[in-house]
Computed example of a mutant assay.
Amino acid sequence: MTVTTTEATEAIRAVELPEVANPSRVAPRDARQLSKLFFDRLAVLEEGTREYQDARNTLIEMNMSLVRFAAGRFRSRGPDEMEDIVQVGMIGLIKAIDRFELTREVEFTTFAIPYIVGEIKRFFRDTSWAVHVPRRLQEARILLAKATEELRTRLGRTPTVKELAVLMCLSEVEVNEARLASNGYSSTSLDAATGSGDEAEAALADFIGADDHALELVEDFHTLAPMIAGLDERERLIIHMRFVDELTQAKIGERLGVSQMHVSRLLSRTIGKLRAGMFSTG
């Protein structure tokens, strides 16, 4: 007997979720098992509904121990910063929950930790300044970095001050001020010792250093950008929803009003077109 998608969805909805009186106190091992049940339910619920929000909130509270675990790696920053670190880590946890799919066939803990640590490292990057810089310029520097990356991807070259000013809704003088403000920002040496006593031998790189293999793809990205610009509107939209918004094929199908199978065919055709273009330019 063939089970349809609708029947499978109804079967998942029919499973009664266990009542979790205090999700934040669930032991990590139990949280891993319970999370699978709640992710199953979340996948078939409509976003924005009370039931969806309740399941999502339970997942967040049950997995707070992951944030505390990740934040513990940065305890040498001192107790004054720890509260901020945990709050920032929670943002990473929420992003991981919203983007996780059981079909990835990986444990949620394995999927979530990089999101949490990445958010914490971004917090350090955006708040570590060697000299005092006005708050507005600190914020402008972050916006400048995002705008520069967006325009570089769109234009295939480094944007001009004028182009940045238009995108950021700032004057060219303010854009230049933001660039100068970047000179007041610096990071701690990766060789700097952390902790005290027995822990003093550990270097900061032992905790946050990692090879960025994506750097090897920079040339490919520059080659790919004009090819994506040459796709038709629907092809670009599908590529954006799948690889930028990280939507599943089923979600994309819902938004476009087509079947998941049709989305799969469109994706395969579009990716094949981009791959052929990459090889022809190589």
Rank of each mutant, 00 (worst) to 15 (best):
L37M: 04
L102H: 10
P28K: 03
G197P: 00
L137W: 05
Q138D: 06
A193Y: 05
T148K: 03
A210I: 11
D126S: 11
A14H: 13
W129G: 05
T6N: 02
D84Q: 09
T49Q: 05
G253E: 06
L151G: 07
R125G: 15
E16L: 09
V3E: 09
R68E: 13
T194G: 07
T270F: 13
L231C: 05
L45M: 02
R29D: 04
G72I: 02
L204C: 09
V15Q: 04
L167Q: 05
T103S: 12
L266A: 11
K251P: 07
A27D: 14
P114A: 11
I271M: 11
V86S: 00
R25E: 15
P18A: 04
K162C: 01
R68Q: 14
V67M: 01
A202Q: 09
T153L: 12
R154H: 08
A21S: 15
G156E: 01
F243Y: 15
A27T: 09
R77N: 06
M261C: 09
L155D: 05
R141Q: 04
A11M: 13
V86R: 01
N22T: 10
D191M: 08
A27M: 12
L215H: 04
D54V: 13
I116N: 02
D220Q: 14
F74C: 03
D30A: 06
R135E: 15
L224N: 06
I239N: 04
D54P: 03
M1F: 14
N183Y: 10
H240W: 11
C169K: 15
A178M: 00
A21M: 15
I252Q: 05
S171W: 10
V20S: 02
V67W: 00
R255H: 08
S268P: 12
A178Y: 00
G92R: 01
S171D: 09
R135V: 12
A71F: 01
T58M: 00
I239W: 04
V117F: 07
A200G: 05
A178V: 01
E149A: 15
G78M: 00
N183Q: 11
R104Q: 12
